[in-house]
Every structure is written in C-alpha cells, then in structure tokens.
C-alpha cells in the first residue's frame, strides 16, 4: 500500500485527480452540449426525403460509427493541421472529434425513437390539418424524448469512460493523472482510485437518468 498509509501523498494524489477531473468533465460537458443537438439535426437529415441530404449523412454516420474513436481524435489533432496549417488547442480538437462521433450515435438513437412512433399518428395529424413540421414538433417529438432516455443514458455513461482515450494526444485528464502517478510510485493503486471516481460520476449520471425516466413514465403507474 503506497497511499493508504501515507495520508499526505493520498491528499496530493486526490488534488491531482481533482485537476484531471476538471479536464475530463469539460470534455464530457462540451461533448454532450454540442452532440445532442447536432445528433438531432443529423437524424432529421438522415430521414429526409431528399437523397442529396440523406446519403451524405448516412455516409458520415457510417464512418463515425465504423472507425475507432481514437483514430478520429488523431485525425482531428494531427491531420487537420497538416491540411489547414494551424493546429487546434488540444481540448478543442478532442471536443470536435468526440462531438462528431457521439452525434452520429445520438442521430441513430433519435431516428429509432422517431420510427417507434406509429405511422398512424402522423396520418391522423395530417387529417386533423397539422403541417408536417407542426406534427413533428407537437406530436412526434415529445414521444420521442421519453423513448430515447434509456438508450441515451447508455451513451452518456460510455462517454464518461471514453474520455480516457484522449491521453493519446497528451491530455492530462483523470486517467492520465492516475497513470503518471502509477509510474512514479510503481503500483497500480492510483488507477483503482481513479476507477472509483469514474464509478462515482456514473452513479450520479445513472441516478439523474432514472429520475428523468420516471418523470416521463407518466402512463406507467
């Protein structure tokens, strides 16, 4: 035991982890902030009647879901500067890569949610004189939201853990702090302490999603 019998060192590690947590949570927050709406836009385009809108988005989703996220991070951070000359800040680069990747997953979740609403409702809305967009916003979307809560929660929990991938471009986030500490003291203890922090974050995320899910379950007792 290199930490639990050495309170000063443990406090120092926790302080370092706390700073790493700041980077982890910024990546997490920015990714959700941009990918949730971008995913919706992609889903709408993916369902478009026009091939010119639908096919590029279909290809985008295929590439984003079909290649490793770590490779996408590398591409944004190392390849784009070669083409455009200027390098992104590390955080900017990884946020761009994560937003594109997660938006692709969210788009398909949204699409699934929309398709789960029976066609009859759209027909009924049409008969009642709703415009397509009106029917979507007022009738379809509210039902979609309650249906996607659980699949979205899966992605959000995965995102918390995926943030550790950015060590590949030298970001010092929670996992990297622990890895560096492990190298110094010659033991894996810091990694398990970091693991407990991830678990704690996801416990909070799960709790919040359960609350949201219950809020939307008004037809089920």
């Amino acid at each position: 035991m290199k930490y639990f019998n050495n309170p000063d060192r443990l406090v120092s590690l926790l302080w370092q982890l706390w700073q790493g947590l700041g980077v982890t949570m910024s990546l997490f927050g920015f990714t959700l902030l941009f990918s949730l709406p971008l995913g919706l836009a992609l889903a709408l385009l993916r369902m478009s009647r026009h091939k010119a809108l639908r096919l590029p988005v279909q290809l985008f989703i295929l590439v984003m879901r079909g290649t490793p996220l770590i490779l996408q991070v590398f591409t944004v951070y190392f390849v784009l500067p070669m083409i455009f000359g200027a390098a992104f800040e590390r955080l900017t680069a990884v946020v761009i890569a994560f937003v594109m990747n997660y938006a692709a997953y969210f788009a398909e979740i949204y699409r699934g949610g929309v398709q789960a609403v029976p066609v009859g409702q759209r027909e009924a809305a049409h008969v009642l004189g709703f415009a397509r967009s009106q029917a979507f916003m007022r009738i379809i979307l509210p039902q979609v939201i309650k249906r996607i809560v659980l699949p979205v929660s899966n992605e959000v929990i995965t995102l918390v853990k995926d943030t550790a991938l950015v060590t590949a471009v030298g970001m010092v986030e929670l996992y990297r702090v622990a890895r560096n500490a492990a190298s110094t003291v010659g033991s894996l203890e810091p990694l398990f302490i970091a693991g407990a922090v991830y678990l704690l974050i996801n416990a909070v995320v799960s709790f919040l999603f359960n609350r949201v899910n219950r809020y939307f379950s008004y037809y089920q007792g």
């Binding site: 120092s12 370092q16 700073q19």
Partner: peptide
C-alpha cells in the same frame, strides 16, 4: 521526467 508523487 515524471510526476512527483508528493507535489504533483
């Protein structure tokens, strides 16, 4: 080059 365990 490494992270000092006591000071960070």
């Amino acid at each position: 080059g490494f992270v000092d365990a006591d000071t960070g």
